[in-house]
Design a protein around this nucleic acid. Structure first.
Lengths: 155, 155
DNA sequence: GTCCTTGCAAATTGTTTGCACCCCA
DNA sequence: TGGGGTGCAAACAATTTGCAAGGAC
């Protein structure tokens, strides 16, 4: 699959080269697919989307590319308990993009939210401080997920 | 593997029969292993512990029994992102046993804590209420995990 | 031309299922 | 004695790896 110049964001090529990597059509395409829609996508979903445009792309390449994009800090990977990894584009800097999840246990829809209310920020700060001291952990990150039923599924 | 009477808690047999199930040596043994130590155990870990006492037990039985015990409400199952399920004994009622996790990203040790500070409970309630209203979700549960380095791994 | 990438097939890993035999109740 | 339980092997699903051919630079 030869690549065509001019596709994809110009910084992508540079960032790849910066770590001794090469720009290929598959990589551009996968990045493009991931950036076009908001949400969390399984490998299979990305694979299907990519194949619509270039049926020659292999599943293995999707796996490898997604892993690469996570290493490069462009994607985040998360699992919601169904045994398959989900990938999501990181928009803005990593810290700006930090968010929590609201998961519908019926339709599996995942809602991100990042404009936390003060109470939630307070909650995290106080709890982190207390836990750090109590268990002598150096806390670097956290995962907060709420599970329930979305509006549609409540009916 | 014939079973020997008198092992395990007496209520276990009754609870099994209550749902048309039978008491077997493997089930008693696995329950015993799980209740003896606090913590989260992978299937492989339970399997190894069980085999020390009865090498004839098969891995499949461990899988099936752990699933059964979760269905019976005696164990909780959780995944921490390394692709393998972890099982943990539920002590006391399910709601009493609710807890959060502190995970060391270096040695994978998981610390539970359940004596939340008052602030934590209060703030969590407020956050849930706000999210419920905003996204019209009926929130039933949540997962809170902090990731970092434990005391040993900081060195 | 060099050496990173890709695609295919095969291997791995964690888990589940089919089935004949076993054993609790 | 009957129907659930067990162990083994095989099936499965998600993901990874070996390797030869292809393409970026």
């Amino acid at each position: 699959m030869p690549r065509r110049d001019g596709c994809g964001p110009p910084w992508f090529s540079g960032q790849l080269r910066g770590c001794g990597r090469r720009l290929t059509a598959a990589r551009e395409l996968i990045l493009d697919v991931m950036s076009r829609k908001e949400g969390h996508f399984s490998v299979e979903e990305v694979y299907a989307a990519v194949r619509k445009q270039y049926p020659r792309v292999g599943l293995v390449t999707v796996y490898r590319t997604l892993t690469l994009l996570v290493e490069m800090g462009l994607l985040a990977c998360h699992e919601f308990g169904d045994g398959r990894a989900r990938y999501e584009m990181i928009r803005g800097s990593k810290s700006e993009d930090h968010h929590h999840h609201l998961v519908c246990t019926s339709c599996n829809r995942v809602v991100d939210y990042r404009d936390f209310i003060d109470d939630e920020v307070q909650l995290l700060k106080k709890t982190e401080a207390a836990l750090s001291k109590r268990f002598r952990f150096k806390i670097n990150d956290h995962v907060i997920e709420f599970y329930g039923l979305c509006e549609k599924c409540q009916k």
